[in-house]
């Protein structure tokens, strides 16, 4: 039996094993998507008729599930469905660019003031819509305290949103936001705040990790916190001074910058691969209680997750955001 989807007054029949997103794209519909992996949520759609499948709602917030929202890239319906794209006015919040600064040769920080409250924890990611395109970016600051959301955006060759951020975005411009999503955020409470935390990532993977560290310190976290930032070469690292001085003022915080190639640099950076440093940090940690956060380049995130799990850390204590890019 093949199911049909009804979209914008037309009916389309799904081919065997096809997702709703694949069917719409095959029929030339210009719908929003990026990762095709159920991670970024830029393909979020709404069902007006027929229940979305369980897989297509797996990582959504309960409130979205209850209203029949679903991820088009994860939905293989076995019954007919009526679907529509998001009502942008209702689902997105307007924000104004408040400031912008370069952090290193290929990363820009964009500070956005949302015009209404956005329910998000530092370290979670938001969906940013510009020029009609939706992408995910992680919150890099204590957004709930500052009233401003800071994003770190890496320049990607021919990337739509990252080029916008680097080349066009300016103070006073408006953008659209939706969020927050994902489980990369600090989980301590007043009664339970002495577990060790290890955070590691490459490039702008630092954004959510830095926010989680700030949040943990803000909550008076008692356990050890170790943040490791990796890059290919010294100029890829940013916020080195900020993190070092933070580590100097908190006894339980340590910071390890690392690069694959030091390129004659005299600064104090560890030279070697990120996974080797993480492995050795995990091997000496209290593996029963450790909480680990890994963000950034997907291959590295998956490797760190796997190694940490094999070393004995429970999968429930490993949190990660692979920064998956557009899947073509």
């Amino acid at each position: 039996m093949t199911a049909n989807i009804f979209f914008q007054g037309e009916s389309y029949s799904l081919q065997d094993g096809e997702t709703v997103l694949e069917c719409l794209l095959r029929n030339g519909k210009d719908v929003s998507y990026s990762c095709k992996n159920g991670v970024c949520q830029s393909c979020l759609m709404h069902s007006t008729q027929g229940e979305p499948t369980k897989e297509s709602q797996l990582r959504l917030k309960d409130s979205l599930k209850a209203q029949n929202f679903f991820l088009a890239c994860q939905c293989r319906p076995n019954q007919d469905m009526g679907i529509e794209t998001l009502n942008v006015e209702k689902e997105f919040t307007k924000g104004i660019i408040y400031d912008k600064e370069m952090l290193c040769h290929n990363v820009v920080a964009i500070h956005i003031k949302p015009l209404a409250d956005i329910e998000a924890r530092p370290g979670q990611y938001i969906n940013l819509m510009v020029e009609g395109v939706v992408r995910s970016y992680s919150i890099a600051n204590l957004s709930n305290k500052d009233g401003v959301i800071t994003l770190h955006i890496r320049k990607i060759a021919n990337g739509i949103v990252s080029s916008w951020a680097h080349d066009k975005a300016k103070t006073g411009d408006s953008v659209l936001l939706r969020g927050g999503m994902g489980d990369c955020f600090y989980l301590g409470t007043n009664n339970e705040n002495s577990f060790p935390i290890l955070l590691a990532g490459t490039g702008t993977g630092l954004a959510p990790l830095e926010a989680i560290v700030l949040d943990a310190l803000d909550h008076g976290h008692k356990g050890k916190i170790h943040i490791i930032h990796g890059g290919l070469k010294p100029s890829d690292l940013y916020h080195m001074e900020k993190l070092q001085s933070l580590a100097d003022s908190y006894e339980n915080l340590s910071y390890t910058p690392c690069v694959l190639n030091k390129e004659n640099s005299v600064i104090d950076i560890y030279e070697g691969s990120l996974d080797a440093i993480v492995n050795s940090a995990v091997s000496t940690a209290d593996k029963i209680n450790l909480r680990a956060y890994f963000c950034g380049a997907p291959e590295m995130v998956n490797l760190l997750k796997k190694n940490t799990f094999i070393a004995g850390v429970s999968s429930k204590h490993i949190f990660s955001d692979p920064f998956l890019q557009k899947h073509t």
Partner: peptide
Amino acid sequence: VEIFYRKMLA
């Protein structure tokens, strides 16, 4: 599941 899958991956 955790113990079993860890053995498989290792």
